[in-house]
Design a protein around this nucleic acid. Structure first.
Length: 113
DNA sequence: AAATTGACGGTTA
DNA sequence: GTAACCGCCAATT
């Protein structure tokens, strides 16, 4: 069968962006989730980099709790030191290595929500 | 058209 | 803990 990778059509790209922003808007205060989890939940696993791109360049993202998105290791976004402050202000704890304590604060979307 | 660039994920040393 | 890779994929050079 056709096994070449399918590119995102403009329609799919729009849907992806909307889904990403919608998921981010649902992250509870005091919790975090990852780029990979968001990508998979939006139906495009392996597109974690696109999630980061979406949050970085979508104007709507500034009004969303995008500071609650970290990478899989709990690392905060490069060049955005304020992210840690914002998280600490809502009770997110960090480990000695400077990463978010994922055991304590990782949030994953659930079907019922 | 080919190479590079990221708000990434994962493995290996 | 660090660093070096590899895979990933749309956007940019």
């Amino acid at each position: 069968m056709h096994d070449f990778p399918d590119r995102m059509t403009p329609e799919q790209a729009r849907q992806f962006r909307d889904d990403v922003l919608n998921i981010v808007s649902q992250i509870p205060c005091g919790q975090v989730t990852t780029y990979g989890i968001i990508a998979a939940w939006a139906g495009w696993p392996s597109h974690s980099r696109m999630v980061g791109r979406t949050l970085r360049y979508s104007p709507e993202a500034v009004s969303l709790p995008c500071h609650r998105v970290v990478n899989a290791e709990g690392r905060t976004a490069p060049g955005w030191s304020r992210q840690r402050t914002l998280l600490e202000e809502e009770g997110v704890t960090f480990r000695a290595n400077g990463h978010v304590d994922m055991q304590q604060h990782l949030w994953q979307p659930e079907p019922q929500q």
